[in-house]
Design a protein around this nucleic acid. Sequence first.
DNA 1: GCACTTTTTTGCGTGGCACGCAACTTTCTG
DNA 2: CAGAAAGTTGCGTGCCACGCAAAAAAGTGC
Lengths: 219, 219
Amino acid sequence: MPPEEPPKLTLRERKKREARRALGQAALRLTLERGLENVRVEDIANEVGVSPRTFNNYFSSKEQAVCSFVEDRHEGMREALLARPEGEPLWESVKQAVLTQYSREGEPDRAYVARIRELMGQLALRGEFLRSHAAVEQVLAETIAKRVGGVDHLLCRLMAASVESAVRVAFFNWFTTEGELLLPTLERLLDELATGMPTLTGGVPKPEPTTTTLGEPLC
Amino acid sequence: MPPEEPPKLTLRERKKREARRALGQAALRLTLERGLENVRVEDIANEVGVSPRTFNNYFSSKEQAVCSFVEDRHEGMREALLARPEGEPLWESVKQAVLTQYSREGEPDRAYVARIRELMGQLALRGEFLRSHAAVEQVLAETIAKRVGGVDHLLCRLMAASVESAVRVAFFNWFTTEGELLLPTLERLLDELATGMPTLTGGVPKPEPTTTTLGEPLC
DNA sequence: GCACTTTTTTGCGTGGCACGCAACTTTCTG
DNA sequence: CAGAAAGTTGCGTGCCACGCAAAAAAGTGC
């Protein structure tokens, strides 16, 4: 095996990617440590050894930088989906691609959960967070469309949006509960989507007067 | 019929609501007229006859103000769902509630479409826009949970998220095409969700080499 | 109608942020 | 190695969110 794989990308390209990655990572780390309001753009820039002005060449806000890790999954998502075998039914492909992507990252470290939960509490991040998810959704929709050829674009979008919904809900559940694993929940939710909505109706329709809170407005 | 309905809310409460509504509306109108980057917080405040500082007592950014109309639907959504008859299957209730809410507003004026499309192009608004949708989703999830009693909260969330997905996709389609109506599309997408994902697979799996663009990353 | 409390509005000041611009440095190409 | 192309940086500018405390408005009890 070659220890140095031939850099197919130009040096510039690699440097750019690396800089962006480093900035996003630094932003996330600092925010987890101190909370967003105690992180200045200057801090992030310094951490990476770059001028504050340069930071804004890559991201147009620190919130965007912090959330960039979500968006970064889009590449893996695309590859995972395109790598599925030709004849496989579409939904199976999508499901497996999603599961592949998120198991690639491994069951996330329990130690981070509390901090991530705190992170998500940051109102200021919610918008950017969702925007990043939407970016992944867009890639997913395009890839699905490419895979199935001439099928209705609306349905591709709907499928992509539904999948991202499941991902968001699974993550939400993951970092608001203590013991549960991410992947099984995600798989279950995806199966639920496949089955269709009425499944939920199977539950007891008795209106319990208990005011059950659903938790934070998160996600 | 009483021409003046007795104000069940205190004067303060009414004034607050009115102020917020006026600010949001002004923000939206000005943005549609001139584009977000040509609207200053000061302009919005002046329009309503209030100090800039007060604007920030109601909204923590102008983007939030512009998007507030989306979030304002949550109240109607809640009522519409709770108003459905007792014995009705859950999904049917949800579907009808959503359709009720969006027909309440009437098929949107064609004249606005171009401007709305432009509005959605504003990168800066996307995050807030999604945040508002998420807020509606949250209310929807809570209301669903309340309606079905003790059923799995995860599934309630998933359903709410899916519904919002359909809404977003339907809107997207509505303001990126010329002739189509919003409500029929929305209903079709909701039915698609009810049926479950594999429906999409029904399409021709032939991989057309045409590089079909899916349109803007919007929504 | 009148004191007293609670809530909202407002002006001011501060720290911070995004971005245009133009000079400078690095990388690329032949 | 020389010129072109792309990326980085410092500076300046306009704007913005929010804390704070004083003033104004709305609610309350008598």
